[in-house]
């Protein structure tokens, strides 16, 4: 196991790795998992990992975050796994990801039970329609916030439009849309290509 950790985790944080116990990691992520209401868990992660505990510096945090965005899986759980792995190896990754999921997962299981019992009541149904309309607004708000931060240039717009067209209009499976557009976009942004240079500016 020490072999895997040594080859997998970045060497510069080896000193930090010794300070963080698996239990500390689990508790820290459990608290994030129980208190990060309303999305934006990244802000909670940053305040815990960088500001409060100083387990990661800002640069490592941003590096892990950019990796977590390019991989399948949710940003929050990917960050838990990457940060846990850096600090304590695979067992740290497991502790962190279980910690961050557990509170919400228990609550949502209970929500599933309550939903099964009460969703046919008219008042509950009416409230759920309001909640669903609100969630729609939240999803679009999140989209606009992310788009404002990451969209640069015509190629980005083209790939965004192509994804919507393939999934919503042509009813292509998300899997095929993801693979086809992911490969096409990677080629467009190939190293040394014109799109990559214009984006870097």
């Amino acid at each position: 196991m020490s072999d895997a950790t040594a080859s997998g985790a970045a060497p510069q944080i080896a000193a930090a790795a010794q300070k963080v116990s698996v239990k500390d990691l689990f508790v820290a992520f459990l608290i994030i998992g129980a208190t990060s209401f309303g999305g934006g868990a990244v802000a909670y992660l940053r305040s815990t990992l960088v500001a409060k505990t100083k387990w990661l510096d800002d640069k490592s945090f941003l590096e892990l975050f950019s990796i977590s965005q390019s991989l399948p899986g949710l940003n929050t759980t990917n960050m838990a796994i990457l940060a846990g792995d850096r600090l304590c190896g695979w067992i740290g990754a497991l502790a962190a990801v279980v910690g961050v999921i557990l509170p919400g997962a228990i609550l949502m299981t209970v929500a599933g039970v309550l939903y099964g019992m009460h969703h046919e009541r008219p008042l509950v149904d009416a409230a759920l329609k309001g909640v669903a309309a609100g969630a729609t607004g939240l999803i679009f708000a999140t989209f606009f916030q992310l788009a404002g931060k990451t969209m640069r240039g015509w190629w980005d717009l083209l790939f965004l439009a192509a994804a919507v067209l393939l999934v919503n209009r042509l009813h292509v499976s998300v899997l095929y849309a993801l693979i086809a557009l992911g490969i096409a976009a990677t080629i467009i942004y190939r190293p040394g290509g014109a799109a990559e240079r214009s984006r870097a500016q």
Binding site: I139, L146, L160, E196
Partner: peptide
């Protein structure tokens, strides 16, 4: 970097498709 830059607008487009 090419993969990260390329996936960003695709992921955002898929998110918008999901939102719709």
């Amino acid at each position: 970097d090419s993969i990260q830059h390329g996936l960003a607008p695709v992921a955002l487009g898929l998110m918008l498709a999901g939102a719709i």
